[in-house]
Amino acid sequence: MGRIWYFVQTVLGIIFRHPVLGTSIIPVLPDGQIVLIRRRDNGKWGLPGGMVDWGQDIPTTVRRELAEETGLELLAIRRLVGIYSAADRDPRVHSVCVVVEAEVQGTMQIHDEWEITAVQAFKRSAIPMGNLSHDHGRQLQDYFDGKTTVA
């Protein structure tokens, strides 16, 4: 019985005491504009993205989240912008976020109305840097600075 309880505790610790893996996407349209979403939970603008589902890899998650939150199609993942892992970067849960730049196309449309209230393309100079959710301001700044960040 002691070995079984130890095993159960170990499994629960792995599930509940480790960060979850997610992704943020910097979607770049053919005209160079960047697409942001307005979050329903806090009303702020942010990068589309979400948690990696069991059995999925990062590219599949990027494709799925991009379609759900913006209606856009992933053409290519251009580059890794960074991996962000600070325990306080997401107010809901400790998450590790893989941020990628993505070449996208299509018509912007919200498919996940529970999470998203708006989707909009911005020129770099018009991005509301002071009204971004989570650590998306830092992620975008690292992207604009050409950095690949591990933080």
Rank of each mutant, 00 (worst) to 15 (best):
L47V: 10
V11Q: 12
R3Q: 13
T107M: 07
V93S: 11
D112Y: 04
E101W: 02
S95F: 00
H134S: 13
P19L: 00
M108V: 10
L75V: 15
L132R: 02
A67H: 11
L140G: 00
A87K: 12
W114I: 07
G13T: 11
D41R: 07
G146L: 04
W45A: 00
A102Q: 03
E113N: 06
S125M: 03
R64I: 05
D57S: 15
D31T: 01
A102H: 02
G82C: 09
L47I: 04
E69I: 09
Q105P: 00
G22H: 04
G50S: 01
V28L: 07
F144G: 03
K147E: 10
V150N: 13
D135Y: 15
M129H: 09
D135L: 13
R92V: 11
D142L: 05
M51K: 15
P48N: 02
R17P: 00
L21W: 02
M129A: 08
G146E: 08
L29G: 08
I4V: 14
R89S: 10
V8R: 13
F7V: 10
H94Y: 06
L36K: 05
T23W: 01
T61D: 06
Q105G: 07
E73K: 15
Q109H: 05
P91V: 04
S95G: 01
I15K: 11
L80Q: 13
I116M: 00
G13K: 13
H18K: 10
I15A: 05
R40I: 01
T70G: 05
A121I: 04
G13C: 04
V8N: 00
A151G: 15
T61H: 10
